[in-house]
Amino acid sequence: MPHLDVPGARLYYETDGHVSKPALLLIHAGIANLRMWDPQISALAAEHYVIRFDTRGFGQTSTDDVAFSNRADALALLDHLGVARATVIGCSRGGTIAIDLAVEHPDRVAGLVTIGSGPSGFPDTELTEVEDARFDEIDQAFAAEDWHKLARLEAAIWDFGPLRREEDLDPEFVSTAYALNRVNVVHAEEKPVSIPLEPPAYDRVVDIEVPTLITVGEYDMSEVLAAYEYLVATVPDASGCIFRDAAHLPNVERPADVERVLLTWLTDNSL
């Protein structure tokens, strides 16, 4: 299994497709790991060199308790693979990292796609009563250090959305959603410290000059929906897409829809 040694960590990564094709860097959500992209890999790798990795604290990556930069980790992987520029596709936390990367290192980013993401520094928004109550449960599980319960509660509120019931959703999707976050429990005691982008991307996304696709699931959290509206309105060359009947992981819940949108957008922008 391929790993890349970086300062204080061993990053697990996978590649698909031919190295001569345009590169895509996929960055997973904070309630998942690189396996979340499995449904799209075959289609994307047909005409692209697809790179994905587990960020620190997730999946099969291991880390020491050190200060680190997610942007530096991503660039180290691109350098290791000999990739000068890539279209960066990120979901949730992964999309925030992707935006930061586009802002801090525009020469390395050919295109940008976010799924259910907001820019670093996005102002706090008021939660709905339902969301607030669910986060109280999450806080209690964290305080009790009940990591398995915490992982399950996090997956439920984000992947299913605050307005939908688990029992009304596709059982296979529900099982996959829980499994994607369950494997991260082994990292609960790790304490790496992420170095934030300064100044954050919130006031800097106006400088993004590459083709950008901003997407979100219609049943995502209220704060994520607000961030979607902000990015669509603020990033100069951005187009938007709302995935119906999906929450925070539309590429897992509605894989065919996401695949179609991604392939069309990549083709239209010659990426």
Rank of each mutant, 00 (worst) to 15 (best):
P2G: 08
H3N: 03
Y12T: 03
T15I: 13
T15F: 04
A23S: 09
L24G: 06
L26H: 04
I27V: 15
I27Y: 11
A29R: 03
A43M: 15
A43P: 12
Y49A: 01
V50F: 06
R52F: 08
S62D: 11
T63M: 11
D64S: 11
V66C: 12
L78A: 05
L78V: 03
V83Y: 02
A86D: 02
G90D: 10
G90T: 11
G94K: 06
G95W: 00
T96P: 00
A98M: 04
A102P: 07
P106E: 03
R108D: 06
R108K: 13
L112F: 11
L112K: 04
L112H: 05
T114R: 00
G116D: 10
S117A: 15
L127M: 13
D146R: 03
L150G: 01
A155V: 10
A156Q: 15
I157Q: 00
F160R: 00
R164I: 05
R165H: 15
R165W: 05
E167C: 09
V174M: 13
Y178E: 11
N184M: 09
E189A: 14
E190T: 15
K191P: 00
P192M: 12
V193R: 12
S194Y: 01
L197N: 04
D203L: 06
R204E: 13
R204T: 09
V205C: 02
V205L: 03
V206F: 05
D207I: 07
I208K: 06
E209W: 14
L213H: 07
I214R: 10
V216R: 11
G217Y: 03
Y219I: 05
Y230S: 04
D237V: 09
S239H: 07
G240V: 14
R244E: 12
R254K: 15
P255K: 02
L263P: 06
T264W: 07
W265G: 04
N269I: 14
S270F: 11
